[in-house]
Simulated assay, not measured.
Amino acid sequence: MTTVVAITAGLSETSSTRLLTDRLVESLGRQTGDVSVEIVALRELAHDVVDATLTGFASPRLQDALDKVAAADGLIVATPIYKASYPGLFKSFFDVMETDAVIGKPVLLAATAGTARHSLAIEHTLRPLFAYMQALVVPTGVFASTHDWGAEGAQALEQRIDRATAELASLLKGAGTGRSRDDEFDLFSETFRSIAEGPRA
């Protein structure tokens, strides 16, 4: 079975970031029935992440989360945006991760914020980070501000969610089938091209 880890970086116990993560997971489940998703909440690992940053050693609990990310076929990554960027906890988690943990791995990026002023944060902060880590980031990022949870923005948000998870599901089709890294990049190129061209007449 294809495995996906959903990393959610909301700092409060109940957050719009976790809500968006859950919506993405539900949508992915509708896109493909043959997927197992595990959620990693960084809030629960905050002290472990700080300790690993200072000592260079991961606690068993943090190491288990890092191992799950490295073993997953794909990732959903959701973070809140503060002052035009992701919080330190989010960055620190990826700082303590092995540098090759997500090479060639399909990744869906999502972010939440209180205002649409942060709507480009996925493009200017998240996407460069995962490009550096050599992940296969799906074309559609999912951003949700306070407006998107209301009646006026809900439909557009749902469309973005479904589009992004469809792109992730397309890339995951090749996961766990013995494809080489070159094959995965070819699959990504084909997926991106088909999305850009739109449905055939």
Rank of each mutant, 00 (worst) to 15 (best):
A70T: 07
A71C: 12
D73N: 15
G74S: 00
G74N: 03
G74A: 03
L75R: 05
V77Q: 01
A78V: 15
A78N: 10
T79Q: 05
T79A: 15
T79R: 02
P80E: 02
P80D: 06
I81D: 02
I81S: 00
I81N: 00
Y82E: 10
Y82W: 08
Y82T: 10
A84G: 10
A84T: 14
S85Q: 15
L89A: 10
F90A: 04
K91V: 11
K91H: 06
K91R: 11
S92C: 07
S92G: 13
S92F: 02
F93V: 00
F93S: 00
D95I: 05
D95T: 10
D95W: 04
D95Y: 07
V96E: 03
D100W: 07
A101N: 10
A101P: 04
V102Y: 01
V102P: 03
I103C: 12
I103L: 11
V107T: 15
L108H: 01
L109V: 11
L109F: 08
A110V: 14
T112Q: 03
T115Q: 06
T115A: 13
A116Y: 04
A116Q: 12
R117W: 12
H118K: 06
S119F: 07
L120M: 11
A121W: 07
A121C: 15
I122A: 02
I122N: 00
E123G: 05
E123Q: 11
E123S: 14
H124N: 14
T125G: 13
T125E: 11
T125S: 15
T125Y: 03
L126M: 15
L126A: 06
L126G: 00
L126F: 05
L126I: 11
R127C: 08
R127Q: 10
F130V: 07
A131G: 09
Y132M: 07
M133E: 06
M133I: 01
M133A: 10
Q134A: 09
Q134P: 04
A135N: 03
A135D: 12
A135R: 01
A135G: 12
A135T: 02
L136E: 02
L136W: 04
V137C: 04
V138N: 03
V138K: 06
P139L: 07
P139E: 12
T140G: 09
T140Q: 15
G141A: 05
V142F: 03
V142S: 04
V142G: 00
F143K: 06
F143Q: 02
F143I: 09
S145C: 09
S145R: 01
T146I: 09
T146R: 05
H147C: 11
H147Q: 14
D148R: 04
W149H: 09
A151C: 06
A151R: 15
E152S: 13
G153W: 07
G153S: 08
A154Y: 13
A154R: 15
Q155A: 15
